[in-house]
Design a protein around this nucleic acid. Sequence first.
DNA 1: ATGCTACATCGACACCTATCTATATTGACA
DNA 2: TGTCAATATAGATAGGTGTCGATGTAGCAT
Lengths: 123, 123
Amino acid sequence: MDLVLTPVGAAAGVAVCCTPLTAPSISEADALALATTLKALADPARLRLLSLIAAHEGHDACVCDLTEPVGLSQPTVSHHLKVLVDAGLLTREKRGVWVHYTLVPGALDVITSHLASHLTAAA
Amino acid sequence: MDLVLTPVGAAAGVAVCCTPLTAPSISEADALALATTLKALADPARLRLLSLIAAHEGHDACVCDLTEPVGLSQPTVSHHLKVLVDAGLLTREKRGVWVHYTLVPGALDVITSHLASHLTAAA
DNA sequence: ATGCTACATCGACACCTATCTATATTGACA
DNA sequence: TGTCAATATAGATAGGTGTCGATGTAGCAT
């Protein structure tokens, strides 16, 4: 239903502010999906949790390894870990009484490559 | 003031849940800084704005180029652009009546390399 | 069975943020 | 100078989110 409203200068050749498009931009759906994943990353507590897990042998750590270093309550840590699992950045595995969280290999690469492909110049 | 509370298994050699640390993790300050920048990226409207600007010739676009494609009000677009400038992802330049926003070259690379260095395995 | 320990869920609260409308500001032009 | 167009700022509001304490759940040990 969008009416074409005064395409300024289009017919008259008047200098317009706009530079021409040279490539397609990200779709609304892709932007939403990327933003959702980035939101999971965009928190200092969650970055520290991911970094702590990455620093552990096998990129694997249990909650008891993580609560004290980040200085947050156990329920809060549990909440953040759930966010990271839901975002596909961690996997959860129960081992007896303990729960181990492990980095998903390549998950970060997927994010950064999407960022690069949509937000950078093609040469 | 933290008292050392029952370092379980430390003396007895009992199997503990925890895997050993093999590397240092991100600092609290670095995590905060990275999260702040990522928050600027973690919004679908801002991702679309960045992508639109990247798709323009010279990675440069004026506000009038951006308002209609993202489908948001002009003040909202202006707000998002300010967030991106404050995050160091865009630069702002006034040209007569119009204002042009330009991608900061390499800004995205800085983010992704920080992510990679803190959150991935060292081989 | 009972209790203990590790972790998750619930409910509440304070704070942040995305969005809008209305208005101000700034520059071009007649 | 006065008007118009492009953009920014202000104020308001609805919804999201990080945090906590309290409580629930599940597995191990005695």
